[in-house]
Each structure stands twice: as structure tokens, then as C-alpha cells.
Nucleic acid binder design. Structure first.
Lengths: 140, 140
DNA sequence: CTCAGTGCAAACCTTTTGCAATAGT
DNA sequence: ACTATTGCAAAAGGTTTGCACTGAG
């Protein structure tokens, strides 16, 4: 993980940003927790490494990461924004359990996105799959 | 549109719900405005037909419609929930302009959703396409 | 030394809830 | 009549902003 941290630091610097203890803690939290975590979860985890961290800083940092292409927002429709660390080969989707809310990462993408569609130039897409996880499937 | 309104009314009744002037106004607003409109937009439009309508009623009605399968929520990541009227053959996706926010409906779905994936039973999906609409494409 | 980043408190905005009044059936 | 539905006001919940202070480069 330290290797990618260096890359991240370089990327931040190139955009006039600074590497701080808070940002390191947030990056580590995101890497540890995995994809599609919300600000609160990242905050709780990052606080272990940096107890003085404020929730507001998490929000501002996530905004900055998204602006710099280091993170991507994920919307699962539960009223909060979740975030993925934008790593190499990062294009992926999410599989969400409708019962317990568990989120799995799905790496295959069978979508050949058309470059043109109804006059639009299509540049990207988001796909979320919904269903029932092994645990919740049994209880039905 | 009156034909489908009757179907809607029947559906509501079968679930112990009542058809009110407010609900008619909201249904009409949704049908007129098209897909992926938020509560505020539906409220503004429905108020033309029923000026005494309250925004809270729109929220509660939309919740009820979703619970009854008459509407579906759409999440485009702009911090508000949007709604589609669930009509026949309603499965569709959205094409969103990253510049102006314009939303087009996309009826083709090239996604053969796998029934099983990583232990999950997959029952549905949401796909949103992003890009630039004809107007905004020119300005670049 | 300079300015990006931080923390706190307060503001914001969308959505939800409590409750008494209203209106379908 | 019975009770689902409504409207208002207030609360809730996630996110953003103002401002003075801190600290990376």
C-alpha cells in the first residue's frame, strides 16, 4: 500500500495540494475498508490513526480526492454518498444486498458502452446490481 | 393517459389506498414531466392542478407509489431522489448530461443480468449513462 | 513566510415525523 | 362512521460553509 501512497502523494502535489496526516489516515481507512464506504465510516476508521480528525475534513478531503481523480463517488440510493478509491483498473460495479445492505465489488463489466446514443456522446456509466446475499437468501 | 389512470386507481384500491385529487395531480405531473423528476419538480407542476397541495404530501405519495410498484426511485447522485412512473415495459435507464444535467430515457438494455453472482441472487440492476448532450457537446 | 488544510459551530437542503383537521369509501 | 390522507410546523440527517487557527512546503 505504501507504493500506491507515493503515487497518490505525487498526484496531489502536482495539483498544488499537500499531503497531511489527516489525508494519510483517510487514504488508509479507505484502502482498509474497501469500496463503497460513506464519509461516516471512513471518518470512524481514520480516527483510529488520527483521533483529532474532524468529520468536516473527511468531507472536504473526499471532495478533493474526487476532483483529483483519486476517488469516485458511489450512489446506492440510501441517502448518503459512498466513495471508492480510484485504483488501477478501477472500473467496477457494486452488488448490493436488498436485505442487509452488504456491498460486494463486481469487477466484470459486460457493458460495451456506446460512444454515441441519442445524440449524446457517452463517456461513462454506473451500474449497480441488486439482490440477496448468501446469508439473507437463506432466511427467506 | 386516462386509461392508465384507471389502472393506477385499481391498483391503489387493491392495496387499501384511496384515490384523491392530490394523487391525481401528482400522477398527471409525473406523466407530463417525464422520467427522473424530483419531488420539488413534481410538486411545482402538480400545484398547477391542485394549488393547495403540500410538498410533504408529494413525498408521502411518492413513497406510497414506490411501495405499491407504481413508481421507481432514480438516483443520479445530485443529492435528491428522482422518480419514474412505472409503466408497462418500464425497464429503462438514463442518459445524463454531465454539463447541463439534462436526462434522457434509454429504453434498450443490453444487460442480461446473471441470476447468480458471487453467491448473491441478483434480482435487478440500475444503469445510468453519463456523457454530453448535443447542445453541450458543441460548446466544447 | 505563505497559503492550503483543519476544526468548530452554524447553516443548508432534502426528506421525515407528530398531530390535529380533512375527506374518500 | 371509519380511517386513509392531508397540511402545517418542527425535526432529522447528511453535507456544506464561514472563519480563525495550524502546519506543510
Amino acid at each position: 500500500m505504501h507504493r500506491s501512497l507515493e503515487g497518490v502523494e505525487k498526484r496531489l502535489r502536482s495539483r498544488g495540494r499537500r499531503m497531511t496526516a489527516q489525508r494519510r489516515a483517510i487514504l488508509e481507512a479507505m484502502a482498509t475498508l474497501g469500496c463503497a464506504q460513506d464519509a461516516e465510516a471512513i471518518y470512524a476508521r481514520a480516527r483510529r490513526a488520527h483521533p483529532r480528525l474532524g468529520l468536516v475534513t473527511v468531507y472536504r478531503t473526499l471532495d478533493a480526492f474526487v476532483a483529483d481523480g483519486l476517488a469516485q463517488p458511489v450512489f446506492l440510493g440510501d441517502g448518503r454518498v459512498r466513495y471508492d478509491l480510484a485504483q488501477e483498473g478501477a472500473h467496477h460495479h457494486h452488488l448490493v444486498c436488498l436485505t442487509c445492505g452488504r456491498v460486494e465489488r463486481v469487477d466484470e463489466c459486460h457493458l460495451p458502452p456506446p460512444r454515441r446514443l441519442g445524440g449524446f456522446r457517452v463517456t461513462g456509466h454506473r451500474l449497480e446490481l441488486f439482490g440477496y446475499c448468501p446469508d439473507c437468501r437463506q432466511q427467506r
